[in-house]
Nucleic acid binder design. Sequence first.
DNA 1: TCTATAACTAACCGATTAGTTAGTTATAAA
DNA 2: TTTATAACTAACTAATCGGTTAGTTATAGA
Lengths: 203, 203
Amino acid sequence: MLFLNDCLVLYSTLFKMPRIKEYNESDVLEKAMNLFWRNGFETTSMHMLEKEMGINKFSIYSSFGSKQGLLLASIKCYQEQLNSLLIEIEKGKNGKQAIKNYFYKFLSFSQRGNNKNGCLITNTKNELRDKAAPEIKNALVNFTLGVKDIFANALSKDSSRTVETINQQSDYLLIAMFGLSSASRVFDRDQLENYIEQIFNSI
Amino acid sequence: MLFLNDCLVLYSTLFKMPRIKEYNESDVLEKAMNLFWRNGFETTSMHMLEKEMGINKFSIYSSFGSKQGLLLASIKCYQEQLNSLLIEIEKGKNGKQAIKNYFYKFLSFSQRGNNKNGCLITNTKNELRDKAAPEIKNALVNFTLGVKDIFANALSKDSSRTVETINQQSDYLLIAMFGLSSASRVFDRDQLENYIEQIFNSI
DNA sequence: TCTATAACTAACCGATTAGTTAGTTATAAA
DNA sequence: TTTATAACTAACTAATCGGTTAGTTATAGA
């Protein structure tokens, strides 16, 4: 992602160099992401973001445009973190087992630090629905479609599944993952692990 | 539930009868419940509630005490409606099939009128978590425990399940129902029906 | 040192929030 | 008709919301 800072570096080679930003945009973005992840969009106020990010409103708005702009940047930051778990699926030789491993890793990811934050993407889908800006909706939908594709590709590595079965099972796993994301905010770890085991009994 | 209206009737036999309420409390409660169900707690403002319920703030506060008090009453109203679906499970002879039928009926219930409202209980759990008043938390937890019991009792009707298996499978179905509630707000009907079929393949 | 510029501070904006309250109206027993 | 009382109206409160802006500060080339 190209941040204003990068533009400034380019700019400074051509014109006079004005005052330098005192914060790192990817550092403060990570903090904003964690706040949205923990509290949701509406509950997270600009005041909370100022305190957590350590910068004031002017800086937030000059770097990210709006509160929803900051959420969109947070979602993309979050998606990059999830992607590093998702590519493990593609490496696995046994598709079903690779997806199952991903479910377990995701569970740890969603409950790290004893916080029951769930999944930022699922949380945002659940919370905003129609109220999200089109860019945010697109980011959420596209990521979800990507995950389904990864599931489908993994399943197609295993022997003897029809195209129809692969489509049904990847759809099923997608909703099961959505359910796990929501449930991970409420249920205990052992209940959730039992849930994962049962999910993979049926495919 | 004993409403102020009922107290008033009792009161009127002993003292002078003052002005009569111009609205029916269970009627306006149903409308409030639908609003909370559709929009969630925070998004539903007192102004929206005034318009939807057809009464003003004073009346809402005199009948239900607070916004969270109105939510609590709405949740109890909602639970009564779900109970009429849940008792069908207890009537069924084949436990697994009875629970599966409940999943399908719940899906129609959660998407009636082409609205993707999900489940008021799941939505509230997802949205409020720690911010809910203790009374609301208790109502949610107790209802959830009740549903698990109903699942367990139904499964124990079928032959040859150990106590351990019944506990695991009813826990699994509880989380699957939670997942279905969340997913029903986002996914399509045929995807969700496929999800239900796959769930019951594994038990 | 001067100057153009962007980073930064802090006060401010109108709108909206949940909740309150003073004053008015309708009721029915007395 | 009088009167006690609760239902009702509507204006109000203090706090908070996302977002803006006028004024100050730091930078580095000229």
